[in-house]
C-alpha cells in the first residue's frame, strides 16, 4: 500500500519533470545567452548616451591636448575637452604598475608552481586568492592613509599621493590575477619537459628559464594582458591614491586617470548635457581599450591550448 503510493508519487514527479524540461532548457539557454546580451546592451547604452556629442568631438584636442574644462568660468567661452592628461595618467599608471606587478607576480607563480610543496603551496594559493578578494576602496584607503606617509618618508618627496602610490596599489590588485594565471600555465607544461631538462644536466633555474618559460609563454602573456586590463579599469584606488591631477607627471608627481575622472564628475553633471556625454566618450575609449585587451588575451590563451593538445 505504502509502496504503491511512493511509486505513484515518483511517477507523477517524473511526469512533471518531463513536462518542465523544455522550460528548464529554456531558462538555461537564456542564462547562457544573457551574458552576450549584457555585453551588447552595455555597448548600446554607452554609445547611446555619448551619441549626440560623438559627431562634434574635436578628436585632435581630445587625444593631444591637456585641457579638461567642461564648465568654463567665463560663460562666453566654449568648454574644452582635452583629455591627453588623463589618458596619459591611465597609461602611466598601467605601465608603472605592470613593471611592479609582472616580475613579482611571475616570481610568486614560479615559486608556488615549482618550489613550494604540501602545506606551504596550499596556504600560499589561499592567500593569493584572499588578496584578490580585497575591495579596491580598501586599497585606496591603504594608499591614502598608510602608503602616502611611507612614500614621503622613504623617498623624501613632497606629495605622498602620486603616480607611484597609485601604481603600487594597482600592482597589488593585479598581482593575484597574474599569479594564478601564470601558475596555471606553468602547471600546464608537461612534467616530461622538466624531467628531460633535468636529465640533460640543467640546473633548476636553467630548467625554469630555458624550458618552462618558453613552453608557458602564451599563458604568461595572457596573464600579463589581463593584469593590464585590471590596471586600465581600476577606479577607486586610483582615484584616492593618485592625487587626482591631470598633468604629465613623473613618478612622484600627482596624476589622474580616465576612470577617476568619470567617477568624480559624473555625479554633479546634469543628465544629458555635453559634459555628461563627454564622460561617456571617455567611457567608450576605456571600453574599447578593455575589449581589445580581453580579445587579445583570449586569442593568446587559445594559442596555448592548441600547442599542448
Amino acid at each position: 500500500m505504502a509502496d504503491g503510493k511512493t511509486s505513484s508519487i515518483r511517477a507523477l514527479g517524473s511526469r512533471l519533470l518531463d513536462r518542465a524540461e523544455p522550460l528548464i532548457k529554456g531558462v538555461i539557454y537564456v542564462s547562457g545567452w544573457s551574458s552576450i546580451l549584457f555585453v551588447a546592451a552595455i555597448f548600446f547604452f554607452i554609445f547611446k548616451e555619448a551619441a549626440p556629442v560623438l559627431s562634434s568631438v574635436d578628436w585632435g584636442s581630445f587625444f593631444f591636448e591637456n585641457r579638461w574644462i567642461p564648465n568654463p568660468a567665463d560663460e562666453n567661452k566654449a568648454p574644452s575637452y582635452g583629455a591627453a592628461g588623463i589618458i596619459y595618467g591611465t597609461f602611466a599608471i598601467t605601465v608603472v604598475s605592470m613593471l611592479i606587478a609582472m616580475p613579482l607576480g611571475l616570481a610568486a607563480a614560479v615559486y608556488i608552481s615549482e618550489f613550494a610543496t604540501g602545506k606551504t603551496k596550499e596556504i600560499l594559493k589561499i592567500l593569493v586568492e584572499l588578496l584578490a578578494a580585497i575591495p579596491s576602496i580598501i586599497w585606496g584607503f591603504i594608499g591614502l592613509v598608510i602608503m602616502s606617509p611611507i612614500i614621503q618618508w622613504v623617498f623624501g618627496v613632497e606629495v605622498g599621493v602620486n603616480l607611484f602610490n597609485a601604481s603600487l596599489m594597482v600592482a597589488f590588485m593585479a598581482i593575484p590575477l597574474i599569479v594564478s594565471i601564470s601558475e596555471d600555465s606553468l602547471r600546464a607544461v608537461p612534467d616530461s619537459y622538466r624531467e628531460a631538462a633535468l636529465a640533460l644536466g640543467a640546473s633548476r633555474w636553467e630548467m625554469i628559464y630555458r624550458v618552462l618559460f618558453p613552453a608557458a609563454k602564451n599563458g604568461l602573456l595572457a596573464a600579463a594582458m589581463l593584469g593590464v586590463g585590471r590596471a586600465v579599469g581600476e577606479t577607486m584606488a586610483v582615484w584616492m591614491a593618485s592625487g587626482g591631477t591631470e598633468q604629465f607627471g613623473l613618478l612622484f608627481d600627482r596624476v589622474k586617470a580616465m576612470t577617476a575622472t568619470i567617477a568624480s564628475e559624473m555625479k554633479d553633471t546634469a543628465h544629458g548635457d555635453e559634459h555628461y556625454q563627454m564622460l561617456f566618450v571617455i567611457g567608450i575609449v576605456l571600453l574599447i581599450i578593455c575589449v581589445i585587451i580581453n580579445v587579445l588575451s583570449d586569442l593568446v590563451i587559445k594559442g596555448v591550448k592548441k600547442k599542448h593538445s
Binding site: 551574458s35 552595455i42 594564478s180 596555471d184 602547471r187 600546464a188 608537461p190 567611457g283 578593455c290
Partner: peptide, 24 residues
C-alpha cells in the same frame, strides 16, 4: 599534467568588466 586553464579566472575578469559597465 593535463593542460588546465582555469576558465573561472577569465570569467571573473569578464564579469568584473560587465559589472563596471552596468554601474555606469
Amino acid at each position: 599534467v593535463a593542460p588546465n586553464f582555469k576558465q573561472p579566472m577569465k570569467e571573473i575578469v569578464r564579469n568584473t568588466m560587465i559589472g563596471t559597465g552596468l554601474c555606469l
